[in-house]
Design a binder for these strands. Structure first.
Lengths: 165, 165
DNA sequence: GGTGATTTGTTATAACATAACATTATGAGT
DNA sequence: ACTCATAATGTTATGTTATAACAAATCACC
């Protein structure tokens, strides 16, 4: 449930990693991308990304809103939804459809499809490279994919009971 | 020589097909599976499946409910949600997370992952075989997948503008 | 420092979903 | 057929997620 310290292996989110580094790096990256693309990385947007980055759990828009409200940064749903929309639109966060919730992106900056593994026990969400053949088979069917979500729900390594590992 | 794929997992939903056959076959299959598993294929459940089968568009629970209500089969949300839950649980329908909506399953009877291509223009939803490598890479990461959704949104062959085909 | 676009604040409501409990139907055993 | 247990449906109420619409403030740029 609680990440320890080491350096990040493949699927980001599960297992030990330097989460402080994880956060500061993501914030720095977002900052840089916003400057490069002349996007306004406003206080609300910045704070929402920080909130998402605090853990690898997905947060609902209303969870985020509650945090903002507690800090006097906005108290009505559209404030949260707009900030989250901005973050998703520019690749700093992803929406997890199965949970109606949001997670910070594990490698922002470049556009990419994403695949997620969602632990139904501890709530951690790990982002992986999708490599889905669906893009190819969609092409064959004449379908033009504009966005794709891949989400798997189950048990993360830490939450699998001893006798079933 | 290139191994041409013939018919097998052609994405069901787009393109011309004998939809009447599509419907009656799916209903017959559901009927048979229910008998085999001693499930109660009640009027409400049957009717909801018929409603979903009327097209390859995804229907929201409240759309389904409106249809039921018009026929005197139930008028409160739980009626629709329960019937849809039954159909999804037993593989006769799928939930499309991106749309908060439901489609009839294109090949019910056997348990299976599903991948969907959702046309944002005409609303048709085609079901394809997923063949996602995520199951393998999840295994490598020690994650036990219990359910998986793959959903691509874009334009179906019929809705792609001439000049971009 | 004016101005046009963007962002935020706010009200109101729409859309989606389920908890809890009463009632009715089913079916299994006698 | 009767009874009990189980499963399904009906109903009330409410909870959760999301957006439309418009006003006010702020920003980017000349």
């Amino acid at each position: 449930m609680k990440p320890e310290k080491t350096t990040p292996p493949a699927p980001v989110g599960f297992g030990a990693h330097d989460h402080a580094h994880c956060k500061t790096e993501a914030m720095a990256k977002a900052q840089a991308v916003c400057e490069a693309r002349k996007l306004q990385f406003t206080p609300v947007r910045k704070r929402v990304l920080e909130i998402l980055l605090e853990s690898h759990e997905a947060l609902g828009a209303y969870d985020v809103l509650a945090r903002l409200a507690a800090e006097g940064l906005g108290s009505k749903p559209p404030v949260a939804y707009r900030a989250l929309g901005f973050l998703v639109e520019h690749g700093f966060a992803h929406r997890i459809e199965k949970l109606n919730a949001f997670v910070a992106c594990s490698h922002p900056g470049r556009a990419h499809d994403a695949a997620f593994m969602i632990c139904r026990d501890c709530g951690l969400v790990a982002e992986a490279e999708p490599q889905s053949p669906l893009r190819r088979s969609a092409g064959a069917a004449g379908f033009q994919i504009e966005s794709m979500v891949i989400e798997a729900e189950g048990l993360c390594p830490a939450c699998i009971p001893e006798d079933k590992a």
